[in-house]
């Protein structure tokens, strides 16, 4: 079974996002960028499936600027077989991304696409679901575990009240949540090996997809800041303040 994993290059999750002074967006100049953490989990899952013999080929895709190649290399160093880089300097919306991925799926014919449940920059959480709808495939969102049995994939999903298990008829889409696995660190020999793995260079035009943005960013601002309050001496004072000053208990 061929497994496709789309990955996104985003602001590293340890770096605090700073809003640009002209309110046009978040400043991404000279800051550390990394693979979206949920995508690392997707890559790990694909590589694990290959190691277990359930995946025969693993393909990592990234749609983004030339530097997105580094993110693809990270996936290759973790163990993915080959890469596809769709180069664009535009920050494409999930709908455009899903359309490009649909076109790639039509060509590559994977049986499983594993995506992160959200990218931690724009926080739309939409690409996986959109791709599923465009392909008319079933989806297991926010996977906590997944298991292949014949032509079905059983996915245990994180839901608000706990866990929910669904059975998907393959081919299918799975989006990953935090507890699915712990992504490995690429070893130095694997990083060296990854440099020799092939990456196809493409552009959105190759897929004939209209990527025109549907949303216009009017402005990006700092969130309203909360002010630090006071320090209380002890538990007794805390109870007193909560009861008599704030009136919340």
């Amino acid at each position: 079974m061929k497994v496709l994993v789309p990955v996104k290059r985003v602001l590293d999750y340890n770096v605090k996002a700073r809003v640009k002074s002209d309110n046009s967006g978040v400043d991404l100049a000279n800051v550390k960028m990394s693979m979206n953490p949920f995508d690392e989990i997707s890559v790990e899952q694909a590589v694990k499936m290959q190691e277990a013999g359930t995946a025969s080929e693993t393909v990592v895709v990234s749609i983004g600027p030339s530097k997105a190649q580094e993110t693809i290399r990270t996936g290759l160093a973790m163990g993915m077989d080959r890469g596809i880089h769709v180069e664009t300097d535009e920050d494409l919306e999930p709908l455009a991304i899903a359309k490009i991925l649909k076109a790639i799926c039509d060509e590559e014919k994977p049986e499983l696409v594993i995506l992160g449940k959200q990218a931690i920059d724009n926080d739309y959480g939409a690409t996986g679901g959109m791709l599923a709808a465009l392909l008319d495939w079933p989806i297991g969102s926010a996977a906590n575990s997944m298991k292949l049995a014949g032509s079905d994939m059983t996915v245990v999903k994180e839901v608000d009240g706990g866990l929910q298990t669904v059975k998907l008829t393959m081919p299918a889409i799975v989006t990953t949540d935090l507890r699915l696995n712990e992504p490995r660190y690429a070893s130095l020999p694997n990083i060296m090996k990854a440099k020799k793995k092939p990456i196809d260079a493409k552009t959105p035009a190759d897929y004939g997809v209209d990527t025109k943005p549907r949303l216009k960013t009017v402005k990006v601002t700092e969130p309203e800041a909360r002010k630090a309050g006071i320090k209380v001496e002890d538990a007794a004072q805390l109870v007193d303040k909560l009861k008599n000053e704030a009136g919340v208990i």
Partner: peptide, 10 residues
């Protein structure tokens, strides 16, 4: 966006 570190008006 960015985990609430920025607010986007779209």
């Amino acid at each position: 966006i960015y985990a609430g570190n920025a607010m986007a008006t779209v």
